[in-house]
Amino acid sequence: PEAADLRALARHLYEAYLKYFPLTKAKARAILSGKTGDNVPFVIHDMKSLMEGEQFINCSQIPIQEHQQQATVLTAGHGGITEVQMASECGLLETTSISGHGLTDAVELRFFYSCQSRSAEAVREVTEFAKSIPGFTDLDLNDQVTLLKYGVIEVLIIMMAPLMNKDGTLISYGQIFMTREFLKSLRKPFCQMMEPKFEFSVKFNTLELDDSDMALFLAVIILSGDRPGLLNVKPIEQLQETVLHSLELRLKLNHPDSLQLFAKLLQKMTDLRQIVTDHVHFMQLLKKTEVDMCLHPLLQEIMKDLY
């Protein structure tokens, strides 16, 4: 009976994962391996193709059939800050008015705003997923905030892995493939931001998790009882323990030949924390060096006093 409960939990989290995350690993791998027929992504490999691809990058305007209802809610909710508004507020839409910045610099920053806007939307998706974890919404509300604040970037980095291969990454819901070389060619510090994620993702992808495994692993990350400032750790640890059991069982059934997969996966959580710490430092550096840069208010909230 206990194993049945753990399998039911795995099924529940997988369903929530499919509900809230538009681009699954299965879809991303199909796109990356060219199994989607004529539906090939637009490739951004230099500044010219970046500018050509900008119309695709405005994620908020891309309708997603399977998530039409959520997309409608999202569009309605975009009375807040879109990447276009952020760029506008920072004077980036009129590139000639920016002293000390050429057109290329403005395009880089504008792309950065698109990333921020998509990240903010992804935070909303992760929040909905977290709320679907049985028992999460019963936790102290302050602790729910803390778990999300500390867990959400780790979750986003894990979710980036299926979109990446050694040559580049899918962005804009899989409609664009951006090459790793292009990202490395951006000016500092932009060029340094994605490389650690590629290195992590290429190694992480060798574990060959599927979407159902991912759903459980993301829940384990969110339910970390050692986040700073938690008020009531015990119920969080109890929830995490149940999800960990479910994950362990799932991996044994789904990957019988992969030795020590559970242990290897848990080890990744340590690597993740370092990547997040480095990422936050990059963002702090950007704030200092890019005088024209605006940080999305939701991301500001998350990163303030994080590490």
């Binding site: 809610v73 909710g77 009375g79 909303r124 919404t137 302050n142 939701l298």
Partner: peptide, 21 residues
């Protein structure tokens, strides 16, 4: 904590209504 994280708090509280991102 809730005061410092108004948007996160809002995201956690609003299950279906749109949230300004």
């Amino acid at each position: 904590l809730k005061e410092k994280h108004k948007i996160l708090h809002q995201l956690l509280q609003n299950s279906t209504s749109p949230v300004d991102l």
